[in-house]
């Protein structure tokens, strides 16, 4: 879908972005509509435009949303919101040609203990879940949550699975996960509410490396099965 038809759709469906303040010094811009790459590319474009604002201290892209952290509380938040709406309506999508990472996954086993639950939720066999998981390329939409963690777009909607109601207490770094329509590889060992389906041997973050994060927004990831343990 090109940007013009996206905008036409917004006009006809009345879908407008949602803008809200988070405290006095941060503002959240949320794109309307579904989690699509077209929408994410417009978030990237908005991020680039906002970088030039002198009042912006940090920009945190999320999944079809963007948080602006200001150097000082804005005097008139509505004025900034108006600027964001105007940029959103006029900016073209920003295509980032990232690198391609091929990532081997050990599917199932104790490190992918939620594979059965994902299969049950999808009404598919674990083998089918695995095939669908590595059947598509993924795109890094945003980095966040933990150092170096990439939110991935590209999950087949048939295996989208809600976050767990009781998080795992000590999920190892490198766990390959599904959280709603989002996919990821956990960056740190610790509590995690996403569903684990496998494990990948990767170092996602090293503060001494430049840049410290292995992934950058726009990078693509292609999973392949290294082993399957059902």
């Amino acid at each position: 879908m090109n940007t013009d038809t996206t905008r036409d759709l917004e006009r006809t469906t009345g879908l407008a972005p949602a803008i809200s303040m988070i405290g006095t010094r941060a503002m959240l811009f949320e794109a309307p509509g579904a989690f699509t790459m077209a929408s994410q590319r417009r978030i990237w474009a908005l991020m680039q435009a906002a970088q030039d604002r002198p009042d912006v201290a940090e920009l945190i892209p999320g999944v079809t949303n963007l948080m602006l952290v200001f150097t000082h509380p804005p005097h008139d938040p509505e004025q900034v919101a108006g600027w964001l709406r105007h940029q959103w309506a006029t900016l073209p999508e920003r295509h980032i040609r990232g690198r391609l990472f091929e990532v081997g996954v050990r599917y199932g086993g104790t490190l992918g203990e939620d594979l059965a639950a994902v299969a049950e939720h999808a009404n598919l066999s674990p083998q089918e879940v695995i095939a669908l998981h590595h059947g598509n390329d993924y795109t890094v939409c945003a980095i966040g949550s933990a150092p170096g963690f990439g939110y991935l777009h590209g999950l087949d909607p048939r295996i989208a699975t809600p976050r767990k109601s009781v998080p795992s207490l000590n999920m190892p770094a490198g766990t390959v996960t599904i959280g709603g329509m989002q996919a990821g590889i956990s960056a740190l060992t610790g509590p995690n509410g996403w569903n684990s389906i496998g494990y990948a041997e990767l170092s996602l973050f090293d503060p001494q490396r430049d840049p410290p994060s292995l992934f950058a927004i726009g990078d693509r990831i292609r999973f392949y099965p290294e082993s399957i343990d059902l």
Binding site: G23, V63, G179, G180
Partner: peptide, 16 residues
């Protein structure tokens, strides 16, 4: 089921 968004200190979230 919200899409992941940025967090700053002071934000009050309500889990299920």
């Amino acid at each position: 089921e919200l899409r992941s968004y940025g967090i700053v200190p002071g934000i009050v979230q309500v889990p299920p």
